[in-house]
């Protein structure tokens, strides 16, 4: 049985500057896999490449047994790979409900869409309370919830979350992480990119530490949490 997502020797460059220098990792169905690392490590670049927003210069991406290298961004979604981008990118002037509906843009099963909207409201009750409100009026954390809910509307096989805790208050961050844990318990496969290593690693089945375009360390979430060098570099311990 092959993994849901297989990345092999992926290399991505902005012009002449290589941002991702040949990384390989796998995501098995049902797993939560996290990429952690500092600013500029190439985490976001990796996700943007996976979802087709950037073109790789080398390497292989296999999703569900199919190569993603030549697939344009708008078709990646239809293959079952949803991307909740960094900085949330919600549609601020549309209502929350319209945002969610756009997440289901490629689906045509009306009853299923309605059911999934209700599911998103159950997952994030605050969105249900404000369904007719413009999304731009939500707080940062609520916007993050909306971005996640919207990504789920496409019924993805793999949900990619890019820095969901960025810029959030500690309480809001805990809420978001709790939601990710809940999604995991429901069997959603997640590829999580985070700077908050502690929170990400305690959730993850697998973790990869990235530094300037390379994966320098891989292991289970628990192993990395207790790893000496990770604790020094990312968890702020001497």
């Amino acid at each position: 049985m092959t993994a849901l997502l297989e990345v092999e020797d992926l290399r991505v460059a902005y012009g002449k500057i290589e941002a991702v220098k040949g990384i390989s990792f796998k995501v098995e169905a049902g797993q939560v896999v996290t990429l952690i690392g500092t600013n500029g490590a190439g985490k976001t670049t990796t996700l943007r490449t996976l979802s087709g927003l950037l073109k790789p210069v080398g390497g292989q991406i296999r999703f569900n047994g199919k190569s993603l290298k030549k697939v344009p961004a708008h078709q990646v979604v239809s293959l079952g790979l949803a991307h909740s981008p960094e900085g949330r990118h919600i549609f601020p002037r549309m209502t929350i409900e319209d945002n969610l509906r756009l997440g289901a843009f490629l689906r045509s099963d009306k009853p299923g869409i309605e059911k999934d909207i209700q599911r998103a409201y159950e997952l994030f009750p605050i969105l249900g309370e404000r369904r007719k409100q413009a999304a731009g009026t939500l707080s940062g954390g609520e916007q993050q919830m909306l971005a996640m809910g919207r990504a789920l509307m496409s019924q993805p096989k793999l949900l990619m979350l890019d820095e969901p805790s960025m810029g959030l208050s500690p309480i809001m961050m805990q809420k978001i992480m709790a939601t990710i844990a809940e999604l995991k318990s429901q069997g959603t496969t997640i590829l999580l990119v985070e700077q908050n290593a502690q929170a990400a690693l305690s959730l993850a089945d697998q973790g990869h530490v990235m530094e300037v375009g390379n994966i320098v360390l891989s292991g289970s979430g628990q192993d990395l949490l207790t790893d000496e060098s990770v604790r020094k570099a990312y968890l702020g311990e001497d």
């Binding site: 239809s78 991307h83 981008p85 549609f91 601020p92 319209d98 509906r101 756009l102 843009f105």
Partner: peptide, 22 residues
């Protein structure tokens, strides 16, 4: 549907692409 896609593209092209809008 196409009207909603137009508005999405106008508001945020990156996000619209991530929704699967061509």
């Amino acid at each position: 549907r196409i009207g909603r896609a137009w508005v999405a593209i106008r508001e945020d092209e990156t996000a619209a692409l991530a929704m699967g809008i061509n």
